[in-house]
């Protein structure tokens, strides 16, 4: 029993888990508002991270200028993707829409590899890298920063949906598109806004991960890990997505601990979430907080 390692991994899991939670949250946002399962979520992270990286290294822009530009860019990018690619698909069968997002992710992934190459790039120092000593543990400041940013984004999202007028419009649209439309909500702009917000939030997460680990195409695996998280939490529950992300993050690191201490299989932490995914689908397919689909005939 190596408690030092275990605690270190648990802290790791907490940090990664909140990030998964943020990404899962933006995934669920698109799903709830537009009924689109977005397979390109991870690529949104990646694009955000690369844009920020380009601004910071190529154009030598300071971080506090580069970050807002990145966010503004991603906001417009989300709207553009929705208008150009997803809007023509409204009314098409759901599998076509899913397929479009799968194709989008291939295109983005390959285009980014083409532009930036396959080797990971270190992110410029944004903060002085030090460790904070907390309860006898050495925790890097980037981790603390990542945790703070993630929690801030979650709170922001909660505020947006609970209080702001636009958030209410979005919830109304998610509840029933036709009724929302008859109440004067522009469903089109809600759809565009859902993509814009989702892209922006993903970009923040992408930059945070990039600051910690550097930028590489491996970032888009966050988009895949979103599925276990979102299914665990319930596909249509934003709070559930956060909880699901946290659990998956912790679980990954616990799996790594078990692996390195007892099993020595190697690589277990990468597949563990998918085993969990299959098990959830078997026993509790609508997740912890998802609404069960009951249909009236």
């Amino acid at each position: 029993m190596n408690s030092q390692l275990l605690i270190q991994l648990l802290v790791n899991g907490l940090v990664v888990g909140t990030l998964y939670g943020v990404v899962a949250m933006s995934f669920v946002l698109i799903y709830k508002a537009t009924q689109v399962v977005n397979f390109a979520q991870g690529e949104l992270l990646l694009i955000g991270a690369w844009v920020c990286w380009t601004l910071l290294t190529k154009y030598q822009v300071p971080f506090y200028v580069g970050m807002p530009i990145t966010l503004a860019f991603m906001f417009c990018f989300g709207i553009a993707v929705q208008i150009v690619v997803l809007r023509p698909m409204i009314g098409e069968p759901i599998i076509s829409v899913i397929m479009v997002t799968i194709a989008l992710s291939t295109v983005f992934q390959a285009a980014l590899k083409w532009i930036y190459g396959v080797s990971p790039q270190p992110f410029p120092r944004v903060f002085e890298s030090q460790s904070v000593s907390f309860a006898g543990l050495q925790i890097q400041t980037v981790y603390v920063m990542s945790l703070v940013v993630s929690v801030a984004m979650m709170i922001g999202m909660a505020w947006f949906f609970k209080v702001s007028k636009y958030g209410l419009a979005m919830r109304a649209t998610a509840f029933n598109q036709q009724v929302a439309q008859s109440l004067g909500i522009s469903v089109k702009s809600v759809f565009a806004m859902a993509w814009a917000i989702s892209a922006t939030v993903s970009a923040v997460a992408g930059v945070v991960v990039a600051v910690v680990n550097g930028v590489s195409s491996g970032l888009s695996t966050y988009g895949i890990k979103v599925f276990p998280a979102a299914i665990l939490g319930g596909l249509d529950s934003i709070g559930g997505a956060v909880v699901g992300g946290l659990i998956i993050g912790l679980l990954e690191n616990v799996a790594q601990y078990v692996d390195s201490e007892y099993l020595h299989w190697g690589n277990l932490y990468e597949v563990a979430p998918f085993y969990v995914l299959i098990i959830i689908l078997m026993i509790k397919p609508y997740g912890l907080f998802g609404t069960k689909d009951i249909e009236r005939i």
């Binding site: 690619v85 023509p88 698909m89 098409e92 076509s96 397929m99 479009v100 799968i102 194709a103 989008l104 992710s105 291939t106 295109v107 992934q109 390959a110 285009a111 590899k113 083409w114």
Partner: peptide
């Protein structure tokens, strides 16, 4: 970059066909 170009082409063609 041929491998990436292929992937891009596949993706773009799927999207174009679907639309």
């Amino acid at each position: 970059n041929l491998t990436f170009l292929r992937e891009i082409a596949i993706g773009v063609i799927i999207i174009l066909f679907l639309i």
